[in-house]
């Protein structure tokens, strides 16, 4: 226990990176996901196909494989990314696919009458989607997005394999130094759990905030 307390600053630094990677990937994943969802629902055949293939590949391959392709694989083509950058890119692309599925379901859950009403008042299709459909879809998508994000938070542990010192790797480094396992693994488990709970709490609050009607 003392060992853990002595090394808390180091573990906190790991937690900071875990959180940073999660938030950055979430941010870009949301943008990618929204674009992909709209491309799948409203795009022409070309964009629809691209979006569908993207989602299919990402969901059909392990995130660890995606990560090593971005970090190690691209080196073959002269693209050398920093570990953190590679983590951001791989995880953003990964989560974008899942986010797009959440958004797609949510957009489809908004009744067609909403779009029709907006079109009937003279809005263009784009205006109707932006002003009427998306705001309603975002609220509907929060519960599935919450699951995706919590999953994401835990998936960040994968980036320890490309030597980003996030939570899992900081524990491993400490273990290598002190030759005791349990206290460090248990403490990072607790930290993951606290972070997940905090995330869920925040998302619930956002959902409540959006449920004024």
């Amino acid at each position: 226990m003392d060992l853990v307390i002595d090394n808390l600053p180091f573990l906190f630094k790991g937690a900071y990176y875990t959180l940073l990677i999660t938030v950055v990937s979430m941010f870009f994943g949301l943008i990618i996901g929204l674009i992909t969802a709209i491309a799948r629902l409203k795009g022409n055949r070309f964009f629809r196909t691209i979006a569908r293939v993207y989602v299919s590949i990402i969901r059909g391959t392990p995130p660890l494989v995606q990560l090593v392709i971005v970090y190690y694989g691209l080196v073959d083509y002269g693209i050398e990314l920093g570990a953190l950058t590679a983590a951001y890119i791989a995880l953003s692309i990964n989560i974008g696919a899942y986010v797009s599925e959440a958004f797609r379901g949510a957009i489809q859950a908004v009744p067609a009458g909403q779009t029709e009403a907006a079109l009937a008042t003279g809005m263009t299709e784009g205006q109707a989607i932006r002003r009427i459909v998306i705001p309603q879809a975002i609220r509907i998508s929060i519960p599935p997005l919450g699951n995706t994000f919590v999953g994401m938070l835990k998936e960040t542990s994968l980036v320890s394999v490309i030597a980003v010192t996030e939570l899992l790797r900081s524990a491993q480094l400490l273990i290598a130094q002190y030759y005791v396992y349990m206290p460090f693994y248990l403490s990072i488990a607790v930290m993951y759990w606290i972070l997940s709970t905090a995330f869920t709490f925040i998302l619930n609050e956002i959902e409540k905030r959006l449920s004024v009607y």
Binding site: G113, Q114, E116, A117, P135, Q136
Partner: peptide, 11 residues
């Protein structure tokens, strides 16, 4: 246009 189901924007 006025619709059977009103289609007001709930948000």
């Amino acid at each position: 246009m006025v619709f059977q189901q009103f289609n007001l924007y709930p948000h």
